[in-house]
Nucleic acid binder design. Structure first.
Length: 968
RNA sequence: GCUCAAGUGGCGGAAUUGGUAGACGCGCUGGAUUCAAAAUCCAGUUUCUUCGGAAGUGUGGGUUCGAUUCCCACCUUGAGUACCA
């Protein structure tokens, strides 16, 4: 009876589905373990062999944990909102919900055939209204919250209102927009409702603001920073420009410090790789320093502006004595005596006010030129130094000397205050700028040569020419400088973060609608009891002629505040019926909390997840997915979880305890070489110096020896007659293709579909081979030819249990050797799984089976536990053989075999005998032999004498049980 | 530029606290079986070699009785970031 994998696999997949073998029950007496995959976006192309890599790894771990007695939650679902379905809808008119549904069906079929132990009863789809009802609900909670810096957590906005009513905002220490102004309790109660709403918006954790956004004209939407790669959109590679738009934003910056703190100190709940933590740390970009205020020296030109500014209420830039102030952020307040000029971003609001008449033309020309340069140009060209003098001077806070104020595009408007104090001796950019424009470069470092370049290091430096800072090092001087600035009222210690608030609006159709309507342009939340607000129908998925998002085309998209329902736009009267928000939420909205949704199995309509479920499952114990989500999904999820915790909706600080990034499986492309200008294809070994053009061919026409199936290629209908008349120049009777490792993609014809693999070799072979390829985290090329190795192994495994007469396993006593094989396998496999080293356990299985075969082992006492070891990796064959061994229940929850050291105890050791560290021969010696005896025996050995060739050894190192090394 | 990974046979990779480098598999070579092929099985497969051996884990140094493993410098590849003050 041979190994009929197709039958076996179908049989057990049906069995698992029928018996709901992998359904996780909440509140069981077993300890819990939550294994999660990053859920897929169901694309039209279906899965290729690279996709299941992480799923197989997590599945092995989930199955292993079940054997270890855990109640395992291992769910799966779909991140089903997204751009591709919408782009397809734009092209074809097909509703994205329909394509999404079709694609999900394909995904599900492909996933099922690989034999994953998912609990599908808890499936999540982000595009389902019953799911996004809760995404909308979380949005409302964010809107109704602010971040209190005193208690370091989010609190209900109602508490802030109470504070405003009793004491105004002067004492409030909360995360808010930069432009809030001070008001008293009396002021507050005097404000009109709309004014109050505007002020509150500046504190809410999600807020509407006019922001400069990354607009992608080709996609017709804004993109978040992490959705842009090298200045173009991540999806599609379209250009991105800066544009001012009114957008919903998430005040993630309020959580910058806590997000960072978790990375550095919460090792328990954030067992992530250092490289991933580094990426997040860099992205948050904390810098500690000081804010310093420079007073602008007033000229008569400026005083004209001042009159105007003072009439505007709340202008912070203006005071009686020094009408204009420039605030800068610096990480080196210790170098304040090295300031020889200041630089403002060209966009800085003071520029127009302080520029003198004489410089006005130059400055305007420069601003115009900078504005024209795209973000990409500015990025590409960082070497050109440019800038213009404004004609104005600032006053040094200590020396009161006049410092020229320049503008330059190396200063970014979006970071810090958009202005810097330039210290050319201590900063290379300032140095280059000063050299270029012939600005003095005062040296404030004792004994440091700055004639060639700036001295930017904080170490080994003592300050000079710096008055009260003279002789101090970086640390001391920084402290002192901040103290002195505080005394003057011209500065304070400050921490800056590179992390920007996240834009949350997308001008797209296929996303979550906001539960928001507008009264006099002020956003109002729809009461949570009326959720979900379901995506309306539109006749086209494009922006409107007026440039509004696709929801602007919906006819029924207005909110009736009396009936609490979505009604026709015709009914809008701005008294009871109001327009609804036209933007939709970004892709990361639904994926920032889905891991909680899986926890709930019964009352999904009542809550986003019940308290019981949240208490039991807590957070994800093991999360596997791609590292490309480092600054997107993984950061936003942490943010939302912290927020939900602050507001008491969940009780964990971090969502993903252990995180592993699986590497990408790359394709091995195959090339034929056409001689230029001919229809002749030359085998790769014969090219020499001929002028050839490499052309991708489908990898399915190439065998393990890189030989091309010419007939197959010629008859491929996709290429029509391209190859039918072609002449192939062979070497040794075959056409050899060239090979190259590239990312898998349709256009490179190197995509390998798991369906074909499952059909030809089976799911167990696919699972084993994906693991066998190499370490999980590593990028590695796929080569289908190699799968015969693991497939052959499964056949051998089968033959160990079954022959032509049926089952050949007996109750005979196992041999000592077989016990040793089994137990060293148990030990190794258990260690491997705990370390996520799945590739090495596949080798271990091969070694075990090879040994047991050689031992002619047919003992049940060995072969039964062996099946349990293998079952997480190759569950179908394990179930089948387990069943044939006479078990009625699934192997999936049987206890993992216990390792016993006693079977591995040896009495002798094959010692490597090395000379000067190089092993020359081995010698079998008893393990209880003493050091001296070993030395004596080895030195007397004929090979030792031959090796030494008469020389006297200087030293003999004997490490009992390990090695003998003879020096000399 | 800065930050972080990683460089081992023809290929994927193994070597868990410094102790026999190349496990396991692919491919290749030879053989058995077969009318033949597939499948299966057996033997070999880092390089050089005067067949005694010798060299060898990106390069060059260092520590050590002993280094793929630790330290320093450099080279290459990949990832992240992009004037962050």
């Amino acid at each position: 009876m041979s190994y009929h994998f197709n039958e076996i696999e179908k049989k057990w997949q049906n069995y698992w589905a029928d018996k709901q073998t992998f359904k996780a029950e909440n509140n069981r007496d077993k300890p819990k373990y939550y294994v999660l995959d990053m859920f897929p976006y169901p694309s039209g192309a279906g899965l290729h062999v690279g996709h299941p890599l992480g799923y197989i790894a997590s599945d092995i771990y989930a199955r292993y944990k079940r054997h270890k007695g855990f109640n395992v939650l291992h769910p799966q679902g779909y991140d089903s909102f997204g751009l591709p379905a919408e782009q397809y809808a734009i092209q074809t008119g097909q509703h994205p919900a329909i394509t999404t549904e079709t694609n999900i069906k394909t995904y599900r079929r492909q996933l099922d055939q690989i034999g994953f132990s998912f609990d599908w009863s808890r499936e999540v789809r982000t595009s389902n209204p019953e799911y996004y009802k809760w995404t909308q609900w979380i949005f409302i909670q964010l809107f109704e919250s602010y971040y209190c810096k005193d208690s370091n957590r989010a609190r209900p906005i109602s508490e802030l209102i109470t504070d405003f009513e009793t004491e105004g905002n002067a004492q409030i220490n909360a995360a808010c927009d930069d432009d809030v102004t001070y008001f008293t309790a009396e002021d507050w109660s005097g404000y009109a409702s709309e004014e109050q709403q505007d002020i509150l918006l500046k504190y809410r954790l999600t807020y509407l603001a006019e922001t400069e956004v990354n607009w992608c004209p080709a996609l017709g939407t804004v993109l978040a920073n992490d959705e842009i790669v090298n200045g173009v959109s991540e999806r599609g590679g379209h250009p991105v420009i800066r544009k001012k738009m009114t957008q919903w934003s998430m005040r993630i910056s309020a959580y910058a410090e806590r997000l960072l703190h978790g990375i550095d100190y919460n090792v328990e709940d954030l067992d992530w790789t250092d490289s991933l933590k580094d990426i997040q740390r860099n992205w948050i970009g904390k810098s500690v320093g000081a804010s310093v205020t420079f007073n602008v020296n007033m000229t008569s030109d400026m005083l004209k502006h001042v009159q105007h500014d003072i009439s505007e209420r709340h202008s912070e830039l203006v005071s009686e004595s020094h009408p204009y102030k420039i605030e800068v952020f610096t990480t080196r307040p210790d170098t304040i005596y090295g300031v020889s000029f200041m630089t403002l971003a060209p966009e800085h609001e003071l520029v127009s006010k302080i520029t003198t008449e004489a410089q006005k033309a130059d400055v305007d020309a420069y601003i115009e030129a900078t504005a024209k340069r795209s973000e990409r140009d500015r990025m590409a060209d960082v070497k050109t130094i440019s800038g213009v003098f404004t004609g104005a001077y600032a006053e040094h806070p200590f020396t009161k000397e006049l410092i020229p104020i320049w503008i330059g595009d190396y200063v970014l408007a979006g970071y810090g205050t958009g202005a810097v104090m330039s210290v050319p001796c201590g900063d290379q950019r300032d140095y280059d700028f000063a050299k270029h424009f012939d600005i003095p470069i005062p040296n404030i470092f004792e004994g440091v040569d700055i004639s060639e370049e700036a001295y930017a290091s904080k170490d080994n430096v003592k300050l000079a020419n710096s008055d009260f800072l003279n002789g101090m090092n970086y640390k001391k001087a920084t402290k002192r400088a901040i103290y002195e600035l505080e005394q003057l009222g011209q500065g304070e210690g400050k921490t800056n973060y590179r992390l920007r608030d996240a834009v949350f609006s997308r001008q797209r159709y296929w996303g979550e609608p906001f539960p928001v309507y507008y009264v006099n342009d002020k956003p109002q939340m729809i009461d949570e009891k009326h959720l979900p607000i379901v995506l309306p129908e539109v006749e086209k998925y494009l922006p409107t002629e007026e440039g509004e998002p696709p929801l602007g085309r919906a006819d029924v998209w207005a909110w009736d505040t009396t009936t609490h329902s979505v009604v026709s736009n015709e009914l809008i009267d701005n008294e009871h019926v109001f327009p609804l928000e036209l933007n939709t939420m970004p892709g990361w909205a639904g994926s920032s909390w889905y891991f909680f949704r899986y926890m709930e199995d019964a009352m999904r309509d009542e809550v986003f997840a019940s308290k019981e479920a949240l208490d039991y499952w807590e957070s994800v114990d093991l999360y596997i997915g791609g590292s490309e989500h480092a600054t997107g999904h993984l950061l936003y999820s942490r943010f939302w979880v912290k927020f939900l915790k602050d507001r008491g909706f969940v009780n964990v600080e971090e969502p993903f305890k252990k995180l592993i990034n699986q590497g990408m499986i790359l394709g091995t492309s195959a090339f034929v070489y056409r001689e230029d200008g001919t229809n002749r294809y030359i085998s790769s070994g014969l090219i020499q110096d001929k002028n050839v053009i490499p052309i991708h061919v489908k990898v399915k026409y190439v065998n393990a020896s890189d030989e091309l199936d010419i007939d197959g290629l010629k008859s491929d209908s996709e290429f029509g007659d391209d190859y039918s008349d072609a002449e192939f120049i062979l070497e040794n009777g075959v056409y050899k293709v060239g090979r190259e490792v590239e990312k898998m993609s349709k256009s490179k014809y190197n995509v390998v579909n798991p369906d074909a693999i499952c059909e030809q070799y089976g799911a167990d072979s696919l699972r084993l081979y994906e693991m066998f390829l190499g370490p999980l985290e590593q990028y590695k090329p796929w080569n289908t030819a190699g799968i015969t190795g693991v497939h052959g192994f499964l056949k051998k495994l089968w033959k160990l249990y079954v022959d032509d007469n049926g089952l050949k396993v007996s109750d005979t006593e196992p041999s000592k050797d077989s016990l040793k094989t089994l137990h060293k396998t148990i030990k190794k496999v258990e260690e491997d799984i705990e370390n996520f080293s799945f590739n090495t356990s596949v080798s271990t299985f091969m070694i075990a089976v090879n040994e047991l075969m050689a031992q002619k082992c047919n003992s049940k006492a060995i072969l039964e536990p062996l099946l349990i070891l293998i079952s997480p990796y190759a569950p179908h064959i394990a179930e089948e053989l387990w069943n044939r061994l006479g078990h009625d229940d699934s192997i999936s929850t049987v206890s993992f075999p216990k390792f016993e050291e006693k079977h591995l105890v040896e009495s002798s050791k094959n010692y490597p005998i090395s000379f000067n560290g190089k092993m020359r021969f081995t010698l079998e010696l008893p393990l209880d032999m003493s050091k001296d005896e070993i030395e004596k025996t080895v030195m007397a050995h004929e090979k030792t004498i031959a090796q030494l060739d008469g020389r006297e050894p200087k030293k003999v190192i004997v490490v009992p049980g390990k090695i003998v090394n003879i020096v000399g």
